[in-house]
Design a protein around this nucleic acid. Sequence first.
DNA 1: CACATTTGTCGTCAACTGACGACTTATGAG
DNA 2: CTCATAAGTCGTCAGTTGACGACAAATGTG
Lengths: 228, 228
Amino acid sequence: MQARSTKLMKAPKRKARAKTGVRMPRAERREQILTHAADFFAEYGLTGQTRELATACGISQRLLYRFFPTKAALQAEVYARTILGPFEGAWLGNLTDRKLPIKQRLTDFYGNYYDKVLTRRWLRLFLYSSLAEGDMAPNYISAILVQLLETIVDEACFELKLEPPGEQDFKRELGWNLHGTISHLAIRRHIYHGPHTVPHARMIKAHVTSFVAGLPVVLEESNPPNGE
Amino acid sequence: MQARSTKLMKAPKRKARAKTGVRMPRAERREQILTHAADFFAEYGLTGQTRELATACGISQRLLYRFFPTKAALQAEVYARTILGPFEGAWLGNLTDRKLPIKQRLTDFYGNYYDKVLTRRWLRLFLYSSLAEGDMAPNYISAILVQLLETIVDEACFELKLEPPGEQDFKRELGWNLHGTISHLAIRRHIYHGPHTVPHARMIKAHVTSFVAGLPVVLEESNPPNGE
DNA sequence: CACATTTGTCGTCAACTGACGACTTATGAG
DNA sequence: CTCATAAGTCGTCAGTTGACGACAAATGTG
């Protein structure tokens, strides 16, 4: 089909070039690519093709390689921004502000976490990455999460006048009760495309309530009267 | 590079054939392929290559196409068996056996569910499929899940002498509290490769306890004294 | 033993895909 | 206006990948 044979043809004919769409300063274009790439790979997975990504960006495929040496390098930067980025900053925020009731602190925190972190883009990218490899930078994430989980349990125990579990691992697992439920709420919405009839804010509140109400019972049950 | 030109060459030379490994009856070979394919696609995703799958099976790539017309057809059957299969049968089992305390019923059920359904293979395949498309057969799954969730909440309410929520959607969401936490426990283990220091049986018990203890409080809070 | 049937492999094609050399065009400083 | 430079595209290569025609070897029936 293609005349790619002879190789002698000088081909003096010039094909009409695409009219160089919009010309952009380097930094801005780079930014635009990264933004589109985040959405693109989140939707189609890390195996999504560079040609399709370029089309989504409205540029030629070649131009991608003017900014990133390889596809993997581009994905690494997307990951760093989209996944790692939102985790930084003062996440624990007012979670430790003991002037506020724990239920309100948790509801506020997870309302924010759900909106800012557990987005479609974040979740899908995170899952695609987690599935593809053992890790990409899970240490960083898990370090922050461990901190979060312990804080949650400690703060809840403080308000409830309970002794937090001595076992670190078990304490974290208790935190996962709430964190897992809310993460799964987002997974159902963004990955499984489940119905979303009940507003998530209402369910976050309900899950926080259940967590705080269940904690004393779980602690008592797992920590029999006859001290260890 | 390749001599794909002349097309006249009769090529009378024969290369030594692979010694036809093990010869197997059709049905058995088919079974073997499906088994390996489930693990293979679960590990490497639906974009895993047929050549590598064939190698994993210890057969030639061509042989796959003696049993399945296309890669997609093979994957569809893998999905039907691995994902849909475990959901069939009397799953609700003794969940409705009111002679047993609800906590024991839930602990038994989810202990079994975690071991039989939430396996590495099942979870990874399910996630890869869910991410790849809006659905593959989610209706079937969600129909069963809805049934399960309602049963859980109804049974828990019965034992606690509480009125189940009138809103169907909200009732299901309450069931997701427990179901989501346990699903997420498996996701952490099989997808995120988180540490698994606390035995899952212990955590399932704790989560069931938390759920049952939290339910009355959630119901009361969401259903203000002043009737609707 | 002969041979039809079934099980299995080789080799190849066409489309796909990451990467990149060669080239074109817009922009702005002098 | 001129030209260096940066922004952008075309075309192509080499390796990959789903699919399949042609052929080979094991099996068992008469």
